[in-house]
């Protein structure tokens, strides 16, 4: 996972300052400047284009990082009482939890995106469902946003394989399908590797 689009400069909030530029990635400042510029240009026509089709997004905050996911894929935001760690599960699986009688795995989004390790936050999870598979991401806060479709930009490869688009205010829209499909594969192969 290469560099990320959500760098410290884009937000006034306090962000963890520990991240180092990854070797071989484009210059961070340059990326930031370009994106900021682009955002400014894109931001202007918003008021005039009220009637355009919009993308409904759920915004997530994890340990200071912010993302968005398409709200179609979000089943609910849920407060979990506790997450039961599973011994011998891959490290990005925080454990399993009880969502009204259903068992759902809880994943560590930051680890999956290569952004480090999040400390367990306040017990909120966002439950996403793709093709009958549901999984929970451990998050801090959540909100909703609407963005005109034309304002979504394809993400540069610099944003990493799991970010499929970028909103005008630089939120990465996560490719949830891909995250689930690929990490699930990883988990399964780790399991058979271990037990063989």
């Amino acid at each position: 996972m290469s560099d990320r689009i959500h760098t410290d400069e884009h937000s006034e909030e306090n962000r963890p300052a520990e991240r180092e530029p990854v070797a071989g990635s484009p210059d961070r400042e340059l990326v930031a400047r370009v994106l900021k510029e682009r955002a400014r240009k894109l931001a202007r026509p918003l008021a005039e284009e009220q009637l355009e089709d919009t993308a409904d997004l759920v915004t997530l905050e994890v340990d200071g990082h912010r993302f968005a996911v398409e709200s179609d894929l979000v089943r609910e935001v849920f407060s979990v009482r506790a997450v039961t760690p599973l011994p011998t599960a891959p490290d990005f699986v925080l454990g399993i939890t009880n969502v009204r009688g259903r068992i759902v795995a809880v994943l560590d989004l930051l680890r999956i995106l290569g952004l480090g390790v999040a400390g367990r936050s306040g017990g909120q999870v966002v439950i996403v469902e793709v093709g009958g598979v549901d999984v929970a991401f451990d998050i801090g806060e959540s909100g909703v946003a609407q963005v005109p479709l034309s304002h979504l930009r394809d993400s540069s490869t610099a944003a990493g394989p799991y970010v499929k688009a970028v909103t005008p205010d630089q939120l990465g829209v996560l490719d949830v399908e891909r995250i689930i499909a690929e990490t699930r594969q990883t988990a399964a192969s780790l399991a058979t590797g271990d037990s063989a």
Partner: peptide, 15 residues
Amino acid sequence: DLGSYLVHVPNVSGS
């Protein structure tokens, strides 16, 4: 089971 996401986890058969 362990939810729809986890297919097999070593040493754990369910919950």
